[in-house]
């Protein structure tokens, strides 16, 4: 008995020494005290947990499927009965059920931008509450004033509402803030910039500011030179002063594509939407 307590004590002591020395090093770097450092790490971990919980809810409580062993064990069989493993999705009004976890994720860590974005996305799409989505994004912007992703999301919302000047303002701000702390060479980050430029170009085109629109389209090509539809549009704009597909129609198509591919909550590895039910 005394041996077990001694071993546990040594483990706890070693762990606290490691945490303490690491925190001292971190403290000298960040200027934050140990307690603040631990609190901050705890808040981030909690926020990540709540965000994962939202993801699990989106899949009707089914957790991320991982490789497992002991599949033939009786315990494994009972486990699978008690904890259904079939991949399913919430739909319609049930989507609201993921919101509390996203709210808790943002309350635990107000810099958890992805949680804000996912919440705004679902509120605007399945929830059909663009007003609430704006409120969420405004709160996100107050807490994260230098984040371009929030501006991009807000620009999309304004475009859906047909508020072009507001959308233009957000795309401009978004481009100014891009890439923030992100890696500018990451494909996702480059895609975000391309989206901002694309919305801006179409808005300029709608206003008749063709040279500025062409400039924005060319900037997209600088990022993704292989995009032939952009090349074609630039050619049409240069030759005829207008494109065959109206910018408003293209915007509608683009926004609906964004909605279709924007189910950020469903972010499983190897996720295939054809092999599972979308419940309710």
């Amino acid at each position: 008995m005394a041996g077990i307590i001694a071993v546990l004590w040594i483990c706890v002591f070693t762990l606290s020494c490691v945490i303490y020395t690491n925190s001292l090093a971190e403290q000298s770097r960040t200027g934050r005290s140990l307690s603040k450092e631990l609190l901050y790490a705890g808040k981030i971990a909690l926020s990540a947990h709540f965000y994962d919980k939202a993801d699990t809810y989106f899949h009707k409580g089914v957790e991320h499927i991982k490789k497992r062993t002991f599949e033939n064990s009786i315990f494994s069989s009972f486990h699978d009965i008690i904890h259904p493993q079939k991949h399913r999705h919430l739909e319609g009004k049930s989507i609201d059920e993921i919101m509390p976890w996203l709210r808790m994720a943002t309350q635990a860590d107000s810099h958890h931008v992805e949680a804000y974005l996912v919440a705004a996305f679902w509120l605007a799409s399945e929830g059909n509450r663009i007003d609430l989505a704006h409120t969420v994004l405004t709160e996100a912007r107050i807490n994260n004033p230098n984040n371009y992703e929030i501006r991009l999301a807000q620009a999309r919302l304004y475009l859906r509402q047909g508020l072009e000047s507001e959308a233009m303002r957000e795309t401009e701000a978004g481009l100014r803030l891009w890439p923030g702390y992100n890696d500018p060479n990451s494909r996702d980050i480059k895609l975000d910039k391309a989206s901002l430029l694309f919305y801006q170009a179409l808005l300029l085109e709608k206003r008749g500011h063709i040279p500025e629109a062409i400039l924005a389209f060319r900037q997209i090509l600088d990022i993704f030179p292989e995009r032939t539809h952009i090349k074609n549009r630039i050619r049409e704009l240069e030759e005829y002063g207008q494109a065959s597909l109206l910018p408003s129609n293209l915007l509608d198509v683009s926004l609906s594509n964004d909605m279709a591919h924007g189910k950020k909550s469903c972010r499983r590895d190897g996720h295939n939407h054809h092999d599972h039910d979308h419940a309710e």
Binding site: K60, S73, F75, H79, I82, P84
Partner: peptide, 20 residues
């Protein structure tokens, strides 16, 4: 795995919460 008590198979929270 086979020796410790399996409380996971006595935990029906997922079934209750997600209407299974």
């Amino acid at each position: 795995y086979h020796g410790l008590p399996h409380f996971d198979i006595l935990d029906m929270r997922q079934r209750i919460v997600h209407d299974y």
